[in-house]
Amino acid sequence: MKLGFIGTGNMAGAIMGGVIKSGLFKPEEIIGADLLEAGREKVKTLYGIHVTADNKEVVEKAETIILSVKPQFYESVIAEIKDVVKPEQIVITIAPGKTLEWLAKQFGKDVKLVRTMPNTPAMVGEGMTAACRNEFVTDEELEGAKKILSAFGKVEVVSEHLMDVVVSVSGSSPAYVFMFIEAMADAAVADGMPRAQAYQFAAQAVLGSAKMVLETGKHPGELKDMVCSPGGTTIEAVRVLEEKGLRSAVIEAMKACTDIAKKM
């Protein structure tokens, strides 16, 4: 088999769905391990992959392994599988705070490692993933890892020292955006709009705005200015947001997030 997962939770499922939908891998080329039978059966039913309760079986059968367990389980899982990991295999990690140096120490031998930080929009095919590699991963192997990661969204290679920043700007940021959408919808409800409709309007506005940034290549400030007519409604709303400290609140929240990531 070509691709193996240790852990079959939501992020693993998002990756499985992405690579199968893209045609990169067939279901029969994927194996996933999970201690919980419910987790195994869920991905088997959804994606038709092979499943097992044995982490070592995944390593023994797959060419590329994705460690998709929670960060607190990395040490014990690596201790379990390190002796069966082969020199030619690539191990992709998705845990915040687990550096390439830390991972190498856990394995205790030369292992091809690709450290990544995806985010939850991967579950709808719109993920943003950062990736970095250790010295044993070739350019060709990195491109292969990027193909896997791009099957559920966008991927960028970054220097490892930026990984903690990635946590705040894309890993955790969906939570900030959800709060913004919820606040926008609450305001619309307060002004008489039905809640379901308010969520639809707010979410679509955020989606469309983000797409404008990505597809036009224009600076966000320029796009903002395009909406703000002199003496109009939008500039008045912008004035209040500035008065209430929106930018400062976002910046301070992200700096706090990055600080926590550095301590993990």
Rank of each mutant, 00 (worst) to 15 (best):
M212C: 01
Q89L: 02
E126Y: 00
I6S: 00
M254A: 14
K2M: 07
E143C: 08
E41A: 09
R247N: 08
N119Q: 04
L142Y: 07
T116A: 05
S173N: 15
W102Q: 10
E143F: 13
L113C: 09
M212W: 05
Q204T: 13
M264K: 12
S209W: 07
V58W: 01
I15R: 00
V114Y: 09
E182R: 13
C132H: 11
V77A: 01
E28R: 14
M184V: 11
E182N: 14
A188R: 08
V227P: 03
A253I: 13
S168L: 08
I235H: 01
L241I: 10
L162T: 13
E41G: 12
T216L: 14
G217R: 05
S76W: 03
L67D: 01
E28Y: 12
R40G: 07
G4A: 10
A95R: 04
V77P: 03
S22K: 14
G48L: 11
V69R: 00
M128E: 07
P71I: 10
C132M: 09
K224F: 08
R195G: 10
G153H: 03
K146P: 06
V114G: 01
V240H: 05
V189L: 04
L24P: 00
D164E: 12
Y74S: 08
Y199H: 11
A183N: 08
A12I: 02
K154N: 09
G18I: 06
G23R: 12
D34S: 13
I81W: 07
A190S: 15
A261L: 06
Q89M: 12
E141S: 12
A122L: 09
A198K: 03
I260S: 12
F5W: 00
A256C: 11
A261D: 02
V169N: 15
F107M: 06
F107R: 02
K105R: 15
L35S: 07
Q200G: 11
V91L: 04
V227M: 12
S172W: 00
E182H: 13
T93M: 13
G221N: 05
G232K: 07
A196K: 13
F107A: 04
V85A: 00
P27E: 10
H161R: 15
G13I: 02
G7F: 00
V240W: 04
M163P: 03
G144P: 01
I148P: 00
N10M: 15
S172Y: 14
P194C: 13
S68P: 06
F180W: 13
T120L: 11
E41Y: 04
D110H: 14
K82R: 14
M179F: 15
P230E: 10
V69C: 00
G23L: 01
F107D: 02
S170C: 14
E252F: 07
A95C: 13
